[in-house]
Nucleic acid binder design. Structure first.
Lengths: 216, 216
DNA sequence: GTCTATACTTGGATAGAC
DNA sequence: GTCTATCCAAGTATAGAC
């Protein structure tokens, strides 16, 4: 289930023919997961979208599941990069909610998190897939924790809130909102929650800037 | 995609042969969704679990998707009944969190919510399934709202909190936590959040019993 | 090393038996 | 009305061509 180098050397930006085909397949796998979900992401469907012979999936990736994991890796890496950039300029809780809402809107429109959701839900049907998907969620938890630490870590709130637990909950909420939004096609319910969160964050801003309990 | 009565009269507790087969199939569909997910819930897999010929699914339900919807109906009805009973005796926020945690633990262990998650995630791969699943989520949102109204509706908190929005978020969170827990097999992370919620609810209890703002 | 044609398996659905 | 045997499409995977 792990990636196997086809050549003697694993190169990130390879311009060989193999690398081109692989990229096409990964891209097509992502799009197919977004459009038709895990069940619809068959070798035939993905290969057709990539404009490539179906057998190439097994040559380059060994199995459909491994191609889908490569797709998940790709989406995950892209998203983590953008999330990191977005959060870099953030200081206060309400600023964090602002950028989170912008990112969430983009995630919804582009369907990035759908890939995650489909892989998580689909994992139960393919033996051995669960642990692989689970491992790839690590960065998402780590990021959520980092974002919270950055904004409320220094304030008195940080020592009260169980940051790790809350970060876990935030990721779960994010996945759940994505699922529901994708299902009924209505973004407004989910986005409304971000507005509520922003009101709440406004209160936390004040709390963070004027610490009521002095630290020695 | 809607249910079609096989007889002239739709009866809830029918003891005919047809009804027996239907019940077996619905039960098997639920178990298959729990064990193998949406992708694994094929006509053959379900029929084998039910100990029944595969063709019966199409005779009794018309399609696999319609059988899965019947399974979702069954799980949803069961759960709503139990949720309702559990919440009936609840008054304060912290009591609500208590019963919610007990229910959540049971849901995790029995896999009830997995059925929901798999159907939501699987909906994108079967044309026309989305709206059907979406409609079946209505009772879940309604219940979450009702539970919140019951506990914080009378208190000053009720007029401040956007109950409808929060209820939507609670359902999303519930689905997300179920997904993550099912994926990594570790209940403790999710259950920890309930502990945190209980601490928070303790504060709300006091707020609710002593209203600072008087209502005319 | 890369890819295509082909083999075989599983899945959805129905025609027709009882 | 209820169910089974059978059909055809779609799925994964590989043997062998280039």
């Amino acid at each position: 289930m792990a990636k196997s180098g086809t050549s003697s050397r694993v190169v990130a930006r390879d311009s060989s023919r193999s690398a081109g085909t692989r990229r096409q397949l990964v891209e097509a796998a992502i799009e197919t997961l977004k459009a038709d979900g895990f069940t619809g992401a068959s070798a035939r469907a993905i290969a057709e979208r990539a404009g490539v012979n179906q057998g190439l999936i097994f040559y380059h990736f060994g199995s459909v599941a491994d191609l889908l994991l490569a797709a998940l890796d790709s989406v995950s890496a892209q998203r983590m990069e953008q999330y990191g950039e977005a959060v870099d300029g953030v200081g206060s809780p309400s600023e964090l909610v602002d950028v989170a809402m912008a990112i969430f809107r983009e995630d919804l429109d582009a369907g990035h998190v759908t890939v995650l959701v489909e892989m998580i839900a689909g994992a139960s049907s393919t033996p051995g897939l669960g642990p692989e998907v689970s491992a790839r969620l690590g960065p998402w938890f780590a990021f959520a924790e980092r974002a919270m630490e950055r904004t409320v870590g220094g304030s008195p709130l940080g020592s009260v809130l169980p940051v790790r637990d809350v970060a876990y909950g935030i990721v779960a909420l994010y996945l759940g909102l994505e699922m529901l939004t994708h299902l009924n096609g209505d973004r407004t319910r989910a986005l409304g929650l971000f507005d509520d969160a922003k009101n709440l964050a406004g209160l936390l801003d004040a709390l963070g800037s004027s610490p009521p309990t002095g630290e020695p």
